[in-house]
Write a protein that binds this DNA or RNA. Structure first.
Length: 351
DNA sequence: AACCACTTCAACCGCCTCCTG
DNA sequence: TCAGGAGGCGGTTGAAGTGGT
């Protein structure tokens, strides 16, 4: 359907807001509250589009906005949530009190994204950039991709619970629509939002079990399972990609050492953590050749391209550590060295 | 001091979803 | 059920700021 402009653009001011305009908007909202942005500018005596007023209020004038630098914890949270939610800036912002989606989006694009790229990490997938790796080795290894699944590190459970709750609420209605169909196939204890069906294919997008598609996940967004489930399954974005394009049948799970519970939940045996040396070798490789990334441990076929890792004590200091502004980019890079964020390893099978 | 390149971020644009009549 | 409006969201832009020469 056609969509009329949100406002008559003729005679409406654009561009930076003046202090007078800000004051008018603040005064009006303090007296009458916000809402009905279409009529608000007229009532407030502003020659502005309602959308412009809303944006100005939500991104700048709102009294609860936290201005200033992002703390280390905030940045860590952004990265972890982004690895799960993708560019859902509003969802990410909802978990960072005082921060707006616009601010987080800008910060991601101007700081975090660049840093990840410098580190050879794809900011979209949170995986090592494949264009920097030996593709042939990767292809050869792809058939063994699932063998090391039991060694995946896992997303910080707390963060994952947050993300799960976000996505759960966001997709609640959609899930209500589709879940009853899937429920016939799945165990009743399977949370609704792991039973999504690919709306396009009309078949499970990620069938994990060949005969009984208990868990199917949408292709249009990162894998997301219940937080409690995730503590024992630990998908990464990389595995998501693989699973999305290669149906994972039950044999794969059995071969990989993943046991299936009655709840159709894969059980993983252990979590992996990484030493700071491992991270350092990744972030500061001896040469620009990505293939020189060394596999740090003795777990053969250990494929842990985790974008977000468990950070139970992620904060390097008891108090928030400011990493934006006063610190240089290099210093900020190094600050990751002392945390276990952004740690992943290249499996031996890729060499 | 002037110029240029680069970075930052507020603001805009257009699309999408939800709500209402 | 559907059309249309309102609000929300993510991508993009461009002015202002900053640093280097």
């Amino acid at each position: 359907m056609g969509r009329a402009p949100c406002c008559d653009k003729n005679g409406l001011k654009k561009g930076p807001w003046t202090t007078e305009e800000d004051q008018k908007l603040v005064d009006y909202i303090q007296k009458h509250g916000y809402g009905n942005w279409r009529t608000l500018p007229k009532n407030a005596g502003l020659q502005r589009c309602g959308k412009s007023c809303r944006l100005r209020w939500t991104n700048y004038l709102r009294p609860d906005i936290k201005r200033g630098r992002f703390s280390f914890e905030e940045e860590e949270t952004i990265i972890q949530l982004h690895s799960i939610l993708g560019n859902k800036w509003s969802a990410i912002a909802s978990r960072l009190p005082g921060r707006t989606d616009n601010e987080i989006k800008n910060y991601w694009n101007t700081h975090i994204r660049k840093r990840l790229l410098r580190m050879g990490i794809d900011p979209v997938t949170h995986s090592p950039r494949l264009d920097l790796l030996d593709i042939s080795s990767i292809l050869n290894a792809s058939s063994q991709m699932f063998l090391g699944m039991q060694h995946y590190p896992f997303v910080n459970p707390d963060l994952f619970k947050l993300a799960s709750s976000i996505m759960s609420s966001e997709h609640h209605k959609d899930l209500q629509k589709s879940s009853h169909q899937q429920n016939q196939l799945c165990h009743p204890q399977i949370p609704e939002f792991v039973q999504l069906q690919d709306p396009v294919q009309q078949e499970p997008a990620c069938t994990m079990f060949n005969s009984t598609p208990c868990v199917s996940l949408p292709l249009t967004q990162p894998n997301l399972v219940n937080a409690d489930t995730y503590q024992s399954s630990s998908f990464t974005d990389f595995t998501y990609q693989q699973h999305s394009h290669h149906e994972l049948v039950s044999d794969d799970w059995h071969k990989s050492g993943v046991s299936l519970t009655d709840d159709c939940v894969p059980q993983l045996s252990s979590y992996n953590y990484f030493t700071s040396d491992d991270v350092h070798s990744l972030m500061y490789p001896p040469s620009s050749e990505p293939s020189t990334f060394h596999s740090n441990n003795n777990c053969n076929q250990n494929f842990s391209l985790a974008s977000v890792l468990s950070t139970p004590s992620s904060s390097p200091t008891p108090n928030s550590t400011i990493i934006n502004g006063s610190n240089t980019e290099d210093e900020r890079d190094q600050s990751y060295d002392s945390s276990n964020m952004l740690k992943f390893e290249i499996p031996n099978i890729l060499f």
